Computed example of a mutant assay.
Amino acid sequence: MLKEANLMKEAEARAGEALRKVLEKVPILQVEGIDGEIMSGEWQPDLIARLLVDGRPHQLICEYKSNGQPRYARPALLELRNYVAHVASEATPVFIAPYISPAVRQMCEEKGVGYLDLEGNARIAFGGVFIELAVADKPVAEQRELKSLFRPKSAQVLRAMLREPGRAWRVTELSQISGVSLGHVSNVRTGLMDREWARVSDDGLVLTEPDALLDAWRESYSAPPGERLRFYTSLHGSTFEDAARSAMRADSSPGRAAFASFSAAQWLAPYARTGSHYFFADDEGLCKLQAALKLTPSSKGENVVVTVPKDLELLADIVEPAPGAICTSPVQTYLDLCIAGERGAEAADHLRQERLSWPK
């Protein structure tokens, strides 16, 4: 406990120095002092900055949190607003954290609270003073945390939840349906709750912001690792579709394959046809496609692209909008379209409107 308290004190000291550096860049401001919290039984701010603004005194009432995610920011903003309203009415509240995401920055603005993070983002306004700073990149730790939320095992949990976004989930249920460990589900649960994309009800975990979750997934998404194979087929139109559906239809022989990307979108939410057909498949499924579609390898001029992903769970996240038309799920199809260039982005937007709209 003593070690944790000392670490917190050090972090607050760094926050105070970061605040001082930002304030000292404003010519009309004079920083008289930045004081640490005064221990008492009641809530007290972590830092109070005493300023002179053109000779007039002003205070910044600051709260520092080691985690700037919405789950921790929201109560801090409430405490700051209450303190300023009842104790220091002429002061300006400021929320400080190692990193403050755009969503929390917007929350601060809506609540009338300034913000500063240790990455260089800031917005502090009072009287005739307006400070606004922004950096383009997320810090490495934030990027890593988001990436971990969308890695294959975690993604299995998210796909299950997005299939039934209004459902309340117990951790054990999510573990069973997604096929990942209870510990991994708990980590995903924490990540969702920290960002306020989900909440816990009496019945379990419920997605509250599926659109925000999908937006963040899209921003972090890259093509699934695996072997991308290019082929040519002489089959076209309904002859091609019938052969593909016959190859993918469940039977006793091993092998899984599914329409993907633009080809899946044609079944899920038709928008624009392309000259190529796209599939995900495992090794046996690839063999079935090669035989049924008369595929020959092609280094250029290909019209069939088959990806054999390392994460074969992608082939479990499927839908069948017509008999034998096995497609990657709307979520997976959307993500793949988003990285498929301009036409893909347009098709993705259309698919999202048609198949991935949730009640607000």
Results as ranks from 00 to 15, higher is better:
residue 298 S to A: 13
residue 345 A to P: 05
residue 276 S to R: 12
residue 97 A to P: 00
residue 32 E to C: 13
residue 156 Q to M: 15
residue 68 G to K: 00
residue 325 A to M: 06
residue 242 D to A: 15
residue 71 R to C: 04
residue 196 E to I: 09
residue 304 V to L: 03
residue 152 P to N: 08
residue 233 T to Q: 08
residue 25 K to Q: 14
residue 202 D to P: 11
residue 226 G to W: 02
residue 105 R to I: 01
residue 24 E to W: 02
residue 213 L to P: 00
residue 27 P to D: 06
residue 106 Q to T: 10
residue 142 E to I: 09
residue 148 S to F: 10
residue 302 E to H: 15
residue 285 G to F: 00
residue 19 L to M: 03
residue 220 S to C: 14
residue 218 R to C: 10
residue 143 Q to R: 14
residue 146 L to F: 08
residue 98 P to T: 06
residue 39 M to G: 15
residue 139 P to A: 08
residue 27 P to M: 03
residue 207 L to K: 09
residue 284 E to M: 12
residue 219 E to W: 04
residue 355 R to L: 07
residue 309 P to I: 05
residue 26 V to P: 04
residue 56 R to A: 14
residue 329 S to P: 04
residue 265 A to Q: 04
residue 174 L to I: 02
residue 13 A to T: 14
residue 284 E to K: 14
residue 161 M to H: 12
residue 293 L to C: 01
residue 77 L to V: 00
residue 216 A to W: 09
residue 37 E to A: 12
residue 49 A to Y: 01
residue 20 R to N: 12
residue 295 L to M: 05
residue 33 G to L: 01
residue 147 K to M: 11
residue 248 M to E: 03
residue 129 V to L: 11
residue 148 S to I: 07
residue 202 D to E: 15
residue 114 G to D: 01
residue 341 G to F: 07
residue 128 G to M: 14
residue 84 V to T: 08
residue 61 I to S: 04
residue 171 V to H: 03
residue 238 S to I: 13
residue 288 K to W: 03
residue 24 E to A: 09
residue 71 R to P: 03
residue 27 P to Y: 07
residue 302 E to W: 15
residue 52 L to K: 08
residue 210 P to D: 11
residue 328 T to Y: 07
residue 271 Y to Q: 08
residue 305 V to A: 06
residue 116 L to C: 00
residue 192 L to A: 01
residue 188 V to A: 02
residue 303 N to E: 06
residue 189 R to Y: 07
residue 220 S to R: 15
residue 43 W to N: 06
residue 327 C to Q: 03
residue 24 E to D: 08
residue 166 G to D: 05
residue 330 P to K: 01
residue 239 T to N: 13
residue 42 E to Y: 12
residue 241 E to T: 14
residue 98 P to K: 04
residue 251 D to W: 09
residue 108 C to K: 00
residue 132 E to F: 11
residue 44 Q to I: 05
residue 200 V to M: 15
residue 312 L to R: 13
residue 290 Q to F: 05
residue 293 L to E: 00
residue 335 L to N: 08
residue 62 C to L: 02
residue 324 G to V: 10
residue 319 V to N: 09
residue 31 V to Q: 01
residue 323 P to H: 10
residue 5 A to C: 13
residue 116 L to F: 00
residue 314 L to Q: 12
residue 215 D to A: 12
residue 215 D to F: 09
